[in-house]
Structure formats: structure tokens, C-alpha cells
């Protein structure tokens, strides 16, 4: 028998466009670009805060400008997507067993959602009140 295996090419730059699940994966990964940029923006905010009222006020004006709000909105959507995808796979990475039985993944995810809600509420209250 003659062997001459044929290797099909893989699109180095475009493979992730070939299936919806790969696109969803890429959206999850790209969240890091926005999250990283937002964190850098927060660091700039802390630096400006340490430089006095005038520096801080101009920073605040930039953050609340239409461009700043648009960036905040996009990052917010990506951050929520990150949270949802992260908690969804937590039971896979850290399965729990109690009394010899696996804890249903839905309970682990639910517990994380609860913690997420509580943490979010505390942050909102800390900033607002």
C-alpha cells in the first residue's frame, strides 16, 4: 500500500472565523484587551488623584466625556461577558464533592452569581453612599 497522507492547511489568521464556538471563544479572549485598558485607565486615575484636585478633575472630565463613556460601556459589556463565561466554567475547573457525591454544577455557578451580586452591591454602595 502506498502511503501519502494529505495534510490540510489551517488558516493561521482566520481559523477562529470558521465556527461560531471559536468566535465566542475569541470574544471572551478579546475581553482582556478592554479589561486591561480599563485597568490602566484606573491606574492613571489614581496617579491623577495623587497629583491634586486640578489633575483629578481633568481626568474625571475625560472619563465622563462621550468617548470615555463609550469606552466604559464597551468594557462593561466585555466585563459582564467575562464574568458569565468565567463562572460558567468554574465547576469544571473546581468541581466539588460532598458526602461522596458531585455537587451539581448549577449550584456552584449559582453560588458564584450570588457572590457576584453581593460584591457588586457592596461596591455600588461604597462608591455612592
Amino acid at each position: 500500500m502506498i502511503r501519502g497522507p494529505y495534510v490540510r492547511p489551517v488558516g493561521r489568521y482566520s481559523w477562529w472565523l470558521s465556527q461560531p464556538r471559536y468566535i465566542r471563544y475569541m470574544l471572551r479572549e478579546v475581553s482582556a484587551a478592554f479589561i486591561g485598558a480599563y485597568i490602566l485607565m484606573l491606574i492613571v486615575g489614581l496617579l491623577r488623584l495623587s497629583q491634586g484636585p486640578a489633575a483629578y478633575e481633568s481626568y474625571l472630565t475625560a472619563v465622563l466625556s462621550s468617548a470615555g463613556v463609550a469606552f466604559g460601556l464597551i468594557t462593561f459589556v466585555f466585563a459582564v461577558y467575562h464574568s458569565l463565561t468565567w463562572f460558567r466554567v468554574t465547576p469544571k475547573a473546581m468541581p466539588l464533592r460532598m458526602r461522596g457525591k458531585a455537587v451539581p454544577p448549577a449550584i456552584i455557578v449559582g453560588a458564584h452569581w450570588l457572590g457576584w451580586a453581593v460584591a457588586s452591591l457592596l461596591i455600588l454602595l461604597w462608591v455612592a453612599v
Binding site: 464556538r21 471559536y22 469544571k92 475547573a93 473546581m94
Partner: peptide, 26 residues
């Protein structure tokens, strides 16, 4: 592994290889 998770989605036996790999990472 970058946890795409496609392996577990197509597995006909619900082995969930992605879960196994994440647990091994930890």
C-alpha cells in the same frame, strides 16, 4: 490549552476533557 472548550462540546461520551485539563492546571 487555552480552554476553548470545544473538545467537551463535541465529546459523545461527556468525558469533558476541558474540565480534566483545567483541574490538572490547578
Amino acid at each position: 490549552c487555552s480552554f476553548v472548550g470545544a473538545c467537551s462540546e463535541v465529546c459523545p461520551k461527556d468525558v469533558d476533557p476541558a474540565a480534566a485539563i483545567q483541574q490538572t492546571k490547578i
